[in-house]
Design a binder for these strands. Sequence first.
DNA 1: GTGCTATTCTAACACACGTTAGCTAATGGC
DNA 2: GCCATTAGCTAACGTGTGTTAGAATAGCAC
Lengths: 225, 225
Amino acid sequence: MAVKGAKSSISQRRVLDAAARIFRDSGYAGTTMRAVADEAGLQAGSLYYHYKGKDELISAVLDSGVSQVATLVKDALAALPATATGRQRIETAIEAHIAAIIAVGDYTLATRRVFGQVPQAIRTRHMRLRDAYGAFWDQLFEDVRAAGEMRPDADLKLCRLFVLGALNWTAEWYKPGAASIHDIAGTFGTLVLDGLLQPAPQPASRGRARAPRGSDHALLSTAAR
Amino acid sequence: MAVKGAKSSISQRRVLDAAARIFRDSGYAGTTMRAVADEAGLQAGSLYYHYKGKDELISAVLDSGVSQVATLVKDALAALPATATGRQRIETAIEAHIAAIIAVGDYTLATRRVFGQVPQAIRTRHMRLRDAYGAFWDQLFEDVRAAGEMRPDADLKLCRLFVLGALNWTAEWYKPGAASIHDIAGTFGTLVLDGLLQPAPQPASRGRARAPRGSDHALLSTAAR
DNA sequence: GTGCTATTCTAACACACGTTAGCTAATGGC
DNA sequence: GCCATTAGCTAACGTGTGTTAGAATAGCAC
């Protein structure tokens, strides 16, 4: 079995980046191998030297995207001091996630837009990576709760779905030059951690307890899945 | 100019619903007129009696989806009493939005997955409807703030993007039989309004003010767009 | 039942796509 | 420089797609 040369990995990377861009804009079926090849500076037949076919190509785009994001977020959290508070950890994760999905924007957008169209087997395989990353966030939330910093009544699986859904949507609307990633992350961090509403006034007669509300009851529900 | 009969609107609706389902799963380019026709119980050539072409069909799916959602949410809010608090209004909007995107789930999912692939002119046209709906939410938030119920430092445009991004993501993962829409909406409402963290203890020496934090600074940033 | 219009079917057109096998060009080790 | 291997090109194959024009069928009013 011959060893592929350095040029091969350079071209392969070029093809993969080109594929991410074309898949991002054209979707799965709308992405032609000729367009990817053209974007990469090759002819369509040449792609088959690097990837067995279109499905292997999209699979590589999907997996590369989520892997890169997961690595960047995990690295950011690992760089925190051991004394970091739950607030700091969640804020860091939020900012790192936003920065990551924007840094690998073509991959992120390709994934979001194409995922539902790829053959089932590819989707199933890719789901493992996504679920692993989601579990990382679940664990982050659980750790913050175990440290007593989180309201005890939140359904963490639902909250994680909400937060990641929102963060991932950032990739669709973010434009360099408007709000910075840091500012966006700050806004979102505060929203997630402290909410939108003005803390309610604390009448002395009622102590620190808030009046029960219907929405509080919902927080006792079971996990979504 | 002949008047189309009742059968035409029945068939047209059938075609539109079928198209939403196929676009949802196959994306823009992957959706063939033959597949849509088959799903609708017609032959592909017949679709051109009802819609001038594929682009008009996808355009109708996109517009129908967001219109239905907007109507359902606006109706839910309009049904609230004039004395409803900001909390109640936001909670209602969240629940109505989730219920709506799930009720027209094929359209919602088709839109999310296909939007980035359609010809630019269609995207531009459709953006008007989406922006109008987003503006409705902006106004909701502004009203709550004007009533003094919202923290004054939140960037409302960013927060709206966050919230709608998260809510729309619900359409992708929601499964009937797990958490109910009401429970999900409750969890998300509390998260959005009150945040995830345990309210910080109130040391008597510090009164009610919280210590300044980096994330609070971010809330003073300008609008994303 | 008849006649007109609405609605659908059908076959075909012009074009496009993923992939393959064989050829060609480039690269690197000796 | 030579040779073997790597990397890319090319033409073609088998199949598929949006659309159209005209034929056929269905629906409806009288």
